[in-house]
């Protein structure tokens, strides 16, 4: 496995999740190119970059929803199996609501993790309170507003008590109040020890929530490190352009 300088610099033990020379091809193009990185326990890592940089694709590769063309993804230093999948959860940009009630959506996630009976009922109630959706418990999930659906999606992802939560631009279509509620849910989970990996376009959100940042450009890691360091002294031209608010494309940073 290739050496990940960030992990070694910080003297960390085996990272929670690590990739080595990760590549992904589709339609004859290399969309993710030689990405080596590590995700450390209980950190909040922001993945940023222009449209088409490969952010969502990288998230799916890390979560195991896509098979890499080359390279590896390791969970606690090992090839991830079903246990790794159950220890992770993901919130998608457009939340997928099952054609069931709000509480049935939560119960379904618990059932997938083998939680039954009284425990399931109790944890469902707790999740409803956490997501401020108790009054909507029996409503069909698909009639909720966009913000409510995304809160339910986050609560559903967290209800199984994952070690690692992936979020793919969870607030991209939400107003500030709804965004605040999602950020509160994510920060509360982080405070309880959940490691966060989130794709965001919002620099303000990254500043509010991020510990580490990975800037992607054309499928490659342009820059990465502690968020404060990267924001203070960006080295890659695409990162500088982003931070300076200049317009740039995946081809012309």
């Amino acid at each position: 496995m290739a050496i990940d300088p960030l992990t070694l610099d910080r003297g960390a033990a085996t990272p929670l999740l690590a990739t080595s020379a990760l590549c992904y091809d589709a339609g004859g193009k290399r969309l993710i190119d030689n990405v080596t990185l590590s995700i450390r326990t209980n950190r909040r890592t922001m993945i940023m970059g222009a449209n088409g940089a490969g952010k969502s694709l990288l998230l799916r590769l890390l979560h195991g929803l896509l098979e890499p063309t080359e390279g590896t993804v390791l969970w606690h230093g090992r090839t991830p199996g079903r246990a790794a999948r159950l220890a992770q959860a993901m919130v998608f940009q457009n939340p997928v609501m099952l054609r069931r009630s709000v509480q049935a959506n939560l119960r379904f996630a618990l059932a997938a993790h083998g939680v039954r009976g009284k425990d399931r009922a109790e944890q469902t109630d707790q999740a409803l309170v956490m997501a401020r959706l108790t009054h909507m418990a029996r409503s069909p999930a698909r009639v909720l507003s966009g913000g409510e659906q995304q809160r339910l999606a986050v609560a559903r992802a967290l209800i199984s008590k994952p070690d690692l939560l992936f979020l793919d631009e969870p607030t991209s279509s939400l107003d500030p109040a709804s965004t605040q509620m999602i950020e509160d849910l994510v920060n509360a989970a982080h405070a309880q020890g959940v490691t966060i990996v989130m794709v965001t376009h919002d620099l303000g959100q990254a500043r509010r929530m991020g510990d580490d940042v990975i800037f992607l450009h054309a499928g490659q890691v342009a820059e990465r490190g502690a968020l404060a360091d990267v924001l203070a002294q960006p080295t890659a031209s695409s990162t500088k352009a982003w931070l300076e608010g200049r317009l740039y494309t995946a081809k012309n940073p």
């Binding site: 195991g64 929803l65 079903r82 999948r85 159950l86 993901m90 997928v96 379904f108 997938a112």
Partner: peptide, 16 residues
């Protein structure tokens, strides 16, 4: 087509 990624994320088995 709508559920596939969410089901994969849940780690659901085929019969589930």
């Amino acid at each position: 087509g709508e559920y596939a990624e969410q089901f994969a994320s849940f780690g659901l088995r085929a019969h589930d």
